[in-house]
Structures are given as C-alpha cells and as structure tokens.
Design a protein around this nucleic acid. Structure first.
Lengths: 144, 144
DNA sequence: CAGAATCCGTCATGATACTG
DNA sequence: CAGTATCATGACGGATTCTG
C-alpha cells in the first residue's frame, strides 16, 4: 500500500477483504444490508421472544417464511448478536433475546434510519434526476 | 398493526417494506451491506477522483472489475451520495466526489467499523461456539 | 411449536473481451 | 480513459411440504 492508511481506514476496506480480521466487520455490515436482520433485532428488543411470536410480529409488517426467519436468526446467533435458549419441553419452546452487541447494532440502525428521514427529500430528487438522465440517453427527445 | 409503533420503529421496518417512503432507508442499508460501496465512498473522500484512479486505489485493497465499480458508482450517484462530472474532452475525463449525504453515510460507516474492533473478540467466541454446536448436531460423539 | 427439506427466481459478484 | 457486453456462479429471498 503506497498511501497512508490508519486503523479505521484499513477496517473500512474490510468488506472487500478476505483476511481473518475482516470477518466481523463484513458480517455486521451484511446484517445491516439484508432484508430482515434489522427488523428482527428490533422485534426482539422488548425482551425474550419465541419463534412463532417473532414470526407473527414481523408478519404484521411483511410476511416472512419460517425458512428465512430461521436463517436470519441463525446468522444473528452465530455472530453473537442474539442468544437462543431451548427449553426441553414438549411442545418445543425456544426463546431469543438480544446480546449487548445486538442492542448496540440496533442503536446504530436506529441512528441511520432516523437520518434517512432528513435525507429522503434529497434522495428522491437525486433519483428523479438520475432517471431523467438515463431516459435521455436511451431515448433522446425528438429534435425540433 | 396492533402494537404501538412510533416513527423510528416504522422506519426500522422499512427494509422489509415496499412502500414508497421506504425506498431511501432500504437503499442506504443496502449500500452499507454490499461489498464495495463503503470502500468506494472512503476512497472518494479526499476530493474529486477519476474512474481509473479510483479503480487503482481500490485495487490496492482488492481487485475490482470495471463492471462492478461502474455499477457501484451508478448506485451511489442515483441515490445522491456521489456526483459524477463529465468533462467533454478526449480522452474522456470523469470526476466523482462525495455529496454531503455521502460524507454523512461514510461517517456512519466509520463509527460502525470502529465499533467492530471492540466487538471482534466476542464475535469470534460466538462463531466458534456456534460451529461447535453445529458440529455436535451433525456428528454426535460416539457413545462410549 | 420450531423448525428442516426441497425447489425456484432474482440479484450481486466476477472474469473476460470489446469500444467511443 | 471510462466505460459496455457477455457469460458464469453463488448467496439471498420465497413458497410449499414435512417432522420430532
């Protein structure tokens, strides 16, 4: 590397890296980017919650299949953002709850989401202008 | 919706929604989650930068194809995070620079990335424990 | 209840070759 | 220089069916 890179800069590069140290950063940003993780963290924030209740709550926003919820929870558990507690009873009972790291990530999500409220107006202007430019390129206005 | 949901909560649900108002939130989180956007914002932070120089700088971290860099920049431009300025000269000259919103998103990225440094140790413990549990399930220790 | 198994469609990533 | 075109792969999202 020919230009200086302090520690934060190096870490910013991590989403594009495959080194061992980059895995955590990559994982966290991936969770922010996927469709369900942030909402799942949010719905788990009130305290321990069971699988079906979580599926029901999320479903009030948008339907989620058991398959996708399971995978989302597995990823969050694997990375230490939620814990999974199994009660050896029948029928099965499993409770999910946030770790302190999960709570921290949720707070980051909230900050970003709050910011998008201010950003929204400019965002839409940019999108419209971009679409207009694309349109001109594909289909130039009839001369005259 | 039967449970109360203030504005931030509603927005947290956005990555899973398709409503018009959810588009900006969804777009921002997607940028954080993809492999190249954060690094591209970071490399564009010093001032205006041309396509090939950007490709070269990012390439020092990890090779990026022109196709992928182009798409990354188009997304960032479309959403008002970078501007693209074309100079009508030959050979072509195009300069990219961050908007204030792009700078803001980059600051969020840095905060999160900094946090993962503290998170990293617990993250790895969680991953190892998770792998150990998965292994036991697939291949239980031979009894006796 | 809390998932696992199966199958499918779409999108992001990526290598390679070509061009105004 | 700054891209576009083409083709391939794999992860993610989703519907449906089955089970300890």
């Amino acid at each position: 590397m020919t230009y200086s890179m302090h520690e934060t800069s190096r870490l910013l590069a991590e989403p594009a890296m495959e080194s061992d140290g980059a895995v955590a950063t990559r994982a966290v940003l991936s969770r922010l980017g996927d469709r369900w993780s942030v909402l799942t963290l949010h719905m788990t924030d009130d305290g321990p919650i069971r699988f079906t209740e979580l599926k029901r709550r999320i479903g009030q926003i948008h339907p989620i299949s058991a398959r996708v919820l399971t995978r989302t929870l597995k990823q969050l558990e694997r990375d230490g953002l939620v814990t999974r507690k199994v009660y050896p009873v029948v029928p099965p009972k499993v409770e999910y709850r946030l770790t302190r790291h999960g709570e921290r990530l949720l707070r980051f999500s909230r900050e970003i989401v709050d910011w998008t409220r201010e950003f929204r107006a400019d965002f839409e202007v940019a999108r419209d202008a971009f679409e207009a430019r694309s349109f001109r390129q594909i289909r130039p206005p009839a001369p005259r």
